[in-house]
């Protein structure tokens, strides 16, 4: 178990205070709000339900995610194969970065190894837990069209196929990705 002093975080907050930009403050502040955190956790656990076997391997691990430029942190614990918020205490893994980089990571616009090489991402403690979390998040395949596919046949599958084709032909997903990427420039 590792104990990390709050002092260090406050210092980096002061140092980088000037470089903050509004959307990241907004996004991170919303995420850090206890009510929203609970909602996000609920959603995350639904999405991550199929990775329960992986999470069981990390059972009991306590993780702190520090947003260094905001001086805020989110404490999580993996319990019974799910992620839950937890209170202060010693942690097994510490992840730290600025709000912008963490937002870009969460939206999968950024490669964590790249940030790590550039010294913009800190990973201390149990490396294997960090790596496993990273790999699980990278393998989550969000299928927005799944509910359409469940509509009665032949209607559901046909509509789904039509939307699939439309996305493919217009490169809508790639455009959306590029738009987000530009809006959240590194």
């Amino acid at each position: 178990m590792l104990g990390f002093p709050q002092k260090h975080m406050t210092k980096t907050f002061m140092e980088h205070g000037r470089t903050l930009t509004r959307p990241f403050i907004a996004a991170t502040t919303i995420f850090m709000d206890p009510v929203f955190t609970a909602i996000f956790m609920g959603l995350a656990n639904r999405v991550l339900a199929r990775y329960q076997a992986d999470f069981l391997q990390m059972e009991g691990r306590r993780i702190v995610v520090e947003v260094s430029d905001l001086g805020k942190s989110l404490r999580l614990v993996i319990r019974r194969g799910k992620i839950a918020p937890t209170r202060a205490g010693p942690v097994d893994l510490r992840i730290a970065g600025n709000a912008k980089d963490l937002c870009r990571l969460a939206l999968r616009l950024e490669d964590p190894d790249t940030l790590f090489f550039a010294r913009r991402l800190v990973l201390e403690g149990e490396t294997s837990v960090g790596l496993q979390l990273k790999n699980i998040l990278d393998s989550v395949d969000l299928d927005w069209l799944a509910p359409v596919g469940y509509l009665p046949a032949p209607l559901g599958p046909r509509i789904r196929q039509a939307i699939d084709h439309a996305i493919r032909n217009t490169h809508a997903d790639r455009r959306l990705h590029d738009l987000l990427d530009r809006a959240l420039q590194p």
């Binding site: 800190v122 149990e126 490396t127």
Partner: peptide, 15 residues
């Protein structure tokens, strides 16, 4: 370099 053998630590001298 299996992950369970890897440790990083941020110190006053660097990573």
């Amino acid at each position: 370099s299996p992950a369970e053998s890897v440790r990083w630590e941020e110190t006053a001298l660097g990573r």
